Amino acid sequence: MENNNHIVLEKREDGIAVLTLNRPESLNSFSHNMISSWYHALQDFKSDDEMKVLVLTATGKAFSAGGDIKALSKGEGFIGEPEVDLWSDAVKRKSALWDNIQKIPLLLEEIDKPVIACINGDAIGAGLDMALMCDLRFCADTARLGEGYIHLGLVPGDGGSYFLPKIVGESKALELLWTGKRVSANDAKQIGMVDYVYPADEVFEKTVQFAKTLCSKPQNALRMIKRLVKNHDKISLRTHLDMVSSHMAVVTDTHEYVTLLEAMKSKSKK
């Protein structure tokens, strides 16, 4: 288990990595130190061939309240660095986003392994956006979810305005972003914001059960399927089919495919 203070990355023997937001006294709101540790934990998961699925969850009563405005506006979260004002002008404000929290969605885009959010409690603003960046979302029935940027006169700084409309559609995304209203877990499921809702004391176990199912699948095909789906709306049909044929050529040349094909042939002969 790797512990980076407010981020804990546990590598389980079953191939599931659990990344836990561990700043419950601040409702798991993000500091610079937390974001940096989060980024390095994702890099670790990406490069570890033994880890097949990542589950993102949190400790305490909340999943995440989003960015810690006070901590993020100062350099106080950087280990070993003096406190500096990172938001003193527009250029610094832009760089503070690009060099820190925006690195998370860009790295997640490179990860072909499944990443599942286990939303154990309220997910607000950037906290919700971090769950939206995942491939699937399991949610506690007690959780409330909302985009709260409008209440401070802000825009989503981490890509929420990119991910939310892809999941719930443009009109609903605009409604949620414009009003900043919070929705219940069940209402979030109705609009497609989350995929599964379970009692709070069961949601982590249910998430892990699903992760185990994914771990049991052929991993090469699983990851190529994710890449195909994630790119489906970014390229033309011709380019997509060209990509599919390339992936098919590769997966049918793997030991996984040959083994499964031989097993199927043997079974059909019985």
Rank of each mutant, 00 (worst) to 15 (best):
C215G: 05
V91E: 12
K230A: 12
A90F: 10
K230W: 02
L128M: 13
S184T: 15
S29C: 13
L108R: 09
L228N: 03
D85Q: 06
I225P: 00
P105H: 05
F204E: 11
D49M: 05
E2H: 04
V53E: 06
A65E: 07
L222F: 06
V168W: 04
G80A: 10
K212W: 02
G121I: 02
R23I: 02
L145H: 01
D141Y: 00
N231E: 13
D129P: 00
A90C: 00
R144N: 11
W98D: 11
A17Y: 04
S73Q: 13
P165E: 02
N120C: 13
G160K: 07
P82H: 12
I104R: 03
I16N: 12
F63Q: 03
Y149F: 15
G75E: 08
D135E: 08
N33M: 04
V84I: 13
Q219A: 09
S29Y: 04
D68K: 14
D201S: 12
E2G: 01
T259F: 13
D112A: 12
G75M: 12
K70R: 14
F210S: 10
L56C: 12
T239I: 06
W178H: 13
L107N: 08
H40L: 09
I104G: 05
V250A: 14
E13W: 00
S245E: 15
K52V: 05
L261N: 09
D85R: 08
L214C: 04
D141T: 04
S29M: 14
S29T: 14
L19C: 12
I111S: 10
A71D: 12
K70P: 06
K234H: 13
L177E: 12
Y149I: 00
M51A: 11
A200V: 04
D89N: 15
G80I: 02
A263C: 01
E109Q: 15
I16R: 07
R182A: 07
Q190W: 00
I150D: 04
L261T: 11
G15S: 08
E202T: 05
F163M: 09
E202H: 13
K166N: 15
T213M: 14
H232K: 15
I101R: 01
M243T: 13
A211T: 09
D68A: 13
R23E: 12
S95K: 07
Y257V: 06
V250H: 13
L132A: 01
A185G: 09
S171N: 11
E205L: 11
V55W: 12
G15D: 10
F78M: 07
I7A: 05
D253W: 00
I79Q: 06
Q102A: 09
H151S: 12
G66I: 04
F210N: 11
D122Y: 01
